[in-house]
Amino acid sequence: MSIKINSILDTTNDFWKVSLEGELDLSTADELKKCLHKLVDEKNIDMRLDLEDLEYIDSTGLGVMIGILKRLKIENKEVYIEKPKNNVRKIFNITGLDKIFKLEG
């Protein structure tokens, strides 16, 4: 199981765009956590997580996303979840996190 993380700073709209590909679970969550916290350390702005190519997410992955959302909320910033596959969207719906995160697409 692996994850590919691409991040881009959109200076025009002032947000981080982070694309995830693969599986976000216990074995890959720490890698994502380090990456997201490094981005926020660099610039604390809204974050857009593109999940179009994310095949799977478990509770550990959700925990990383909740952690970064809590950190961003301190400065009134948001985490937007973009284009999740149906199975990933279902996890957000079941856990009620669709009401916490801004889901788009």
Score class of each variant (00 low, 15 high):
residue 98 D to F: 05
residue 30 D to R: 12
residue 33 K to A: 15
residue 86 N to K: 15
residue 52 E to N: 14
residue 18 V to Y: 06
residue 93 N to Y: 14
residue 80 Y to M: 07
residue 94 I to C: 00
residue 32 L to G: 07
residue 30 D to V: 13
residue 71 R to W: 01
residue 11 T to K: 15
residue 17 K to L: 08
residue 83 K to P: 00
residue 85 K to R: 09
residue 45 I to C: 04
residue 43 K to V: 10
residue 55 E to F: 10
residue 29 A to V: 02
residue 90 K to D: 02
residue 42 E to H: 13
residue 94 I to S: 00
residue 25 D to I: 05
residue 16 W to N: 01
residue 38 K to L: 10
residue 1 M to N: 14
residue 85 K to V: 02
residue 24 L to N: 11
residue 4 K to D: 00
residue 67 G to R: 02
residue 2 S to D: 06
residue 16 W to K: 04
residue 45 I to P: 06
residue 14 D to V: 12
residue 79 V to D: 00
residue 82 E to H: 04
residue 95 T to P: 06
residue 28 T to C: 15
residue 65 M to E: 11
residue 80 Y to E: 04
residue 83 K to A: 06
residue 100 I to P: 00
residue 25 D to L: 07
residue 23 E to Q: 02
residue 103 L to K: 03
residue 54 L to M: 13
residue 61 G to D: 03
residue 44 N to S: 15
residue 59 S to A: 08
residue 93 N to H: 15
residue 50 D to Q: 03
residue 55 E to T: 06
residue 93 N to Q: 15
residue 10 D to Y: 13
residue 15 F to S: 13
residue 94 I to L: 02
residue 97 L to Q: 05
residue 31 E to W: 05
residue 70 K to H: 12
residue 81 I to K: 05
residue 13 N to P: 02
residue 67 G to Y: 01
residue 79 V to E: 00
residue 6 N to C: 02
residue 84 P to R: 04
residue 79 V to S: 02
residue 8 I to E: 08
residue 23 E to K: 03
residue 71 R to P: 01
residue 85 K to Y: 06
residue 9 L to T: 10
residue 61 G to M: 04
residue 70 K to I: 09
residue 37 H to M: 11
residue 89 R to G: 11
residue 6 N to K: 05
residue 26 L to G: 14
residue 16 W to P: 10
residue 47 M to L: 10
residue 58 D to M: 12
residue 77 K to Y: 13
residue 53 D to C: 07
residue 2 S to Q: 00
residue 32 L to T: 06
residue 20 L to T: 03
residue 80 Y to W: 10
residue 52 E to A: 13
residue 13 N to Y: 14
residue 73 K to A: 08
